[in-house]
Design a protein around this nucleic acid. Sequence first.
DNA 1: AAGTGGTCTAGACCACGTA
DNA 2: ACGTGGTCTAGACCACTTC
Lengths: 221, 221
Amino acid sequence: MKRHDEIREEMLRRINDGEWPVGADIPHEFELTEEFNASRGTVRRALSTLVEQGLIERRKRAGSRVARRTSQTSKLSIPLIREEIENRGHDYSYRLLEREVMAGTGARAGLLRLTCLHLADGRPFQLEHRTINLDVLPGAADQPFRAAGPNEWLVREVPATRVITRISAAAADADTAEILSVAERDPLLVVTRDTFLGDAHLTEARLSHPARSYEVTTVSI
Amino acid sequence: MKRHDEIREEMLRRINDGEWPVGADIPHEFELTEEFNASRGTVRRALSTLVEQGLIERRKRAGSRVARRTSQTSKLSIPLIREEIENRGHDYSYRLLEREVMAGTGARAGLLRLTCLHLADGRPFQLEHRTINLDVLPGAADQPFRAAGPNEWLVREVPATRVITRISAAAADADTAEILSVAERDPLLVVTRDTFLGDAHLTEARLSHPARSYEVTTVSI
DNA sequence: AAGTGGTCTAGACCACGTA
DNA sequence: ACGTGGTCTAGACCACTTC
């Protein structure tokens, strides 16, 4: 256990036990360095973790206090679908349903559109509608994506600077219901993800799952 | 712009432009301090941000390299429902539908169960099923929760150390459909949240939204 | 105006894990 | 074995913002 971990845990204990009540000021950095007999950098490292978690607010000149939280922040990690399925102990398989290069309009090069099905133990698990910007990722045109999904290639070869993920629910339309082996109007959990490299929009994915077999879990930071 | 921000942005640019290709080693800390004419601490601060983002991997003795990512991590922030609705420019209103103190079994104190409806411009937006552990939060029993939802009180008065959030889709049953003014079997986006203080399970919330009017958005870290 | 947190430096020692 | 990243220290200066 590192020194800053020890200090952070002691601070956490004080918050939990009410020694540092919500809304109350906590000691200044100098007092904490003396009390914990640690350097300022180490004390600040412990504090900054708590600030990230939203447990402590700090303002210059006004000191630090235990935060009155107004929102819950947590960390969401969406793994490769193959890993997700294998981690659950199921057999992963994959089928490419459609592949189409859209003709570019004017000076713009085209888009690569893919429809893929990911299965767990042979049962449909995720329907993936994928669009890849061939302008930015011309190498994608050479990939068959017949044996493995496009995300396997993307995530390994392409760095991304910004990812926007939206999670929504939708009712299955007739086509989707048939592909996913659910009834029409059954609920789906839909994850939509836009990936950017700088300003360039690399790829967009729409991932539909039967609600029965999938949910997204996050843990506090 | 802080020095460590400048250094991080230059590193990002090199990754994006392929000067530091995916999988390749990047210079050691000492070389970077010389090149950027900054102290080791500042260089490490820039690097550690990129490590958090999953863009760079570091291993002792083996050096640092641009990561081959295997998952996308992002930050999910779920605000108070009132703020969420007001931020969208709608009028927020609230109704307490049920309130019940469950008798404790044996030595355990009871649970407080609440059913609440949150509305945007008078239209149902979120149905909240809430359970509060009166063992740990006896003060909750004194709160009427008639004018404002329990989360307003919880989030302001109670610190939490661990929050597990699950996001799923479900079909509306008859009761829920009526309350939320949707058709039976319509898709709902359901957020379930368990909040802990140390080992104590403080509260559990099941938040159901008509899929049409709600989605969860996250951005990369 | 002054005290707080924020940033940066220079240097030391440590521990891990690869070469 | 030894070079790398990881941790910690002591101190300086800065900037914000409240007193």
